[in-house]
Design a binder for these strands. Structure first.
Lengths: 157, 157
DNA sequence: CGACCGACTGCACACATTGACCAGCCGATA
DNA sequence: TATCGGCTGGTCAATGTGTGCAGTCGGTCG
């Protein structure tokens, strides 16, 4: 179930050069095309690869500011807050967490000034008690998966 | 430069059904194939679409636990800390932020117990003064971009 | 030991898609 | 009005895809 070495190499290859097809991948990996197809089918059907959606840069859409907000929620309002935040386009993701806050969400905005509008919209909801925001200045490690895939593949050798 | 309505529909279409090609997309959007090709080329070359990498689920790799760690950094150690964290596969992303902490990173681990090992590795570095970790319990809004694209497209109508 | 099983290889085929071109049309603009 | 960029609708050769098949290999089970 885990992921073997060939799966790992395949995922890394696809991550590095997404435009190559099954045929080219089989050439690079030195295996038959059918093998790559079978592996890909399996990886996708068991959920290891969720899909190949376009990786869109919010900055290019006019939202260059990213921030993380820690939210404190009124007891029993979780579901309502989730629904509320799900309806705000600038909320890119939302997690419920342990620790000081109850939820952590990633926000984007058109500018620092615009961020105020977004935060107002986020916290302008009854179930939210308090919000603490951290604006992102730099992103030294953009969201990545390759090193983890390599490690996972190595572990199952 | 921003993104017009057709761009928005194209991105949303690709996000919803990544496997369709240029030809099918042109049929769905009701425009000529060359138009879709030209739009795609432009979106990719100006960075709006970074690529079409596989969307890998860390849980399927054996890393079902996600956490966010807020780090406090010793003055002037930023670059070293960045390099250190960049070398840890379980660090999926890293941001420098304003606010209470200096950096925020997303971590994954094989289990809650394993998370301790990851955190030890992350903070086991001279420049890091303190770390505060929040374990993710639920993910009501997984990382998404479609609503934002729709809004951006609408704004530029 | 022999049968079985899953995974991989190597090959074949029909079909769809891609990338590249081209001429022509149209609306905005100088 | 002349020009320009973007879109259309068409063609072409080359490539990739989905599919099926027979054969090989290593491991497992009775």
């Amino acid at each position: 179930m885990a992921i073997d070495h060939l799966d790992g190499r395949l995922i890394v290859l696809l991550a590095r050069e997404p435009r190559i097809g099954v045929l080219e991948a089989s050439r690079r990996l030195g295996v038959a095309r059918g093998t790559v197809q079978a592996r890909l089918d399996r990886l996708q059907s068991n959920g290891a690869i969720r899909g190949f959606g376009p990786d869109v840069d919010p900055a290019a859409l006019g939202y260059p500011v990213t921030a993380f907000a820690t939210l404190e929620i009124k007891q029993g309002q979780g579901a309502d807050v989730r629904a509320h935040l799900g309806g705000v386009p600038e909320v890119l993701e939302l997690h419920t967490t342990t620790g000081h806050g109850d939820m952590l969400c990633r926000l984007v905005a058109r500018s620092n000034a615009d961020l105020q509008r977004v935060i107002d919209r986020v916290v302008g909801f009854d179930g939210i008690v308090r919000a603490s925001t951290a604006i992102v200045m730099e992103n030294p490690v953009p969201l990545r998966i390759i090193p983890l895939v390599e490690q996972a593949a190595q572990d199952s050798d």
